[in-house]
Nucleic acid binder design. Structure first.
Lengths: 252, 252
DNA sequence: AGCGCCTGAATTGCATGCAGTTTGGCGGCC
DNA sequence: GGCCGCCAAACTGCATGCAATTCAGGCGCT
């Protein structure tokens, strides 16, 4: 909540940053599904800025892998392939092992309190929407990364975590996140105890289980990613030759 | 060399991409030292585009951590702190272990040939400038990452490798890179042999040795990063109250 | 001489305008 | 009826212009 004076990257306090954060959040809360169109005009209008700024924001998000930018085409929310999702989780596991390795036994009391408070919040939001639960769970991991005081690590963990979030909305069954909360508690406990090996294996299995629960199977027989792209829209417009986008930018 | 149809990110074939690649290369070859100013006009003029495009390119590079963007201030080539450099190498080690783990024993003949050719090129460039050697060594690692066919991994390894390059120009002694070449050859051999554990430990020690050779010491008594920032300019303009930038954007 | 203010040049922040490309739908043709 | 080509609308790619901010140097004051 605090302004977080640590430099972060190129989007603090300016309008581009506002748009980026808003879109990121909308994406990970699945208000914007993969494949949703993001026209520069609509974005600019929605946020009260010109296309130039909206465009710049899209560029940043594309660099993070959250949106896809094709030349002369409307930007869309990224639709990672199943393989990319798998890769993202692999990378995430390694990065987060690094995080907890650096953190084991080195947490301050205040940090421990912060983490516990966050997990309590996760617990409290259990009866809310799935989207909020997912966001909070993701933010727990980012919170951990931030405690390493390594901006680079924060950036990479954040990015890859967001990316994983994105894939959850594509390939995941509606899952209960209770176990995740317990696993978060276990990780905090191990971190406090300072057992480096333990906490690394906990984190590993935690992420691995999330990945396995989420990335159920390569889908029926997905030889083409076209199927993946159409998957979210399979429940309506089945008689049309070409599937129209059910929701565009959601506002206006 | 092929157009590489794989989407990559938001900067293929457009002018922004050209500028990004040029600047990246200039930075890792140390033609642009950390702290060098990058005014939008000069960039635009140099590349024959408008400020808008130059600005966008700077945004992308900032997202990669190669340039620093401060509001209302001229963009500069990033000057990572010693700690950030250390962190970058830590992350890089983990990521590249992941790379070689996926690659061990799975290289095609063509890939092996490509790798060997690259190392030969490194060898051939040994009597060239240091900058070229460093670039080639870095590109070897990126080449490896590309062979995983994981775009995400490619992106992260590239970024972090570039970042490490950047730090080399700040904290490294002029080192001979011959040993690095031999280590590269050893890694290829182990990859071909398919010994996963061996290749991972080789990669680990390879990067670790580079890091240790490079990041010699925390510098005299760097309580302030101001010292780090001024370090590259310590050899001239010593009588001035405020140090002027020795070289601006190098062209015009 | 040293210090601070003040002013102009340099530079960024951002919106707008125009040109080129894609899109989607309509009408004609087979 | 189905298919192909054309056309207008939508959208992006990019440059330019204007306002706001920073920066550098000079001037006056102490």
């Amino acid at each position: 909540m605090a302004p977080r004076s640590a430099g972060k990257n190129a989007e603090s306090s300016d309008k581009v940053g506002v748009i980026c954060r808003a879109l990121r959040r909308a994406i990970i809360e699945q208000a914007l599904e993969p494949g949703a169109k993001l026209p520069e005009d609509s974005l600019g209008e929605r946020f009260g800025v010109s296309r130039t700024i909206a465009r710049h924001a899209l560029g940043q998000l594309a660099a993070e892998g959250l949106v896809e930018l094709r030349r002369n085409r409307i930007a869309v929310v990224a639709t990672p392939s199943w393989q990319e999702a798998r890769d993202a989780f692999d990378i995430r596991i390694e990065l987060e092992r690094l995080v907890v390795r650096q953190l084991a036994g080195k947490l301050t009391k205040a940090q421990i309190a912060t983490l516990n408070a966050h997990v309590d919040a996760e617990d409290g939001a259990r009866d809310g929407t799935d989207a909020v639960s997912i966001r909070l769970a993701t933010e727990f991991h980012i919170l951990l990364a931030q405690m390493t005081n390594s901006p680079i690590l924060v950036r990479y963990v954040s990015e890859v975590a967001y990316r994983c979030c994105l894939t959850l909305s594509l390939y995941s069954r509606p899952h209960s996140s209770e176990c995740a909360i317990n696993e978060h508690r276990a990780i905090i406990a191990a971190l406090v105890k300072g057992d480096e090996a333990k906490v690394m294996s906990l984190m590993h299995s935690h992420l691995d289980s999330v990945a396995n629960r989420a990335l159920v199977a390569p889908a029926p027989q997905r030889g083409r990613d076209l199927l993946d792209i159409l998957a979210p829209y399979a429940d309506e417009g089945e008689s049309e030759r070409v599937v129209k986008m059910p929701k565009v930018v959601r506002a206006r």
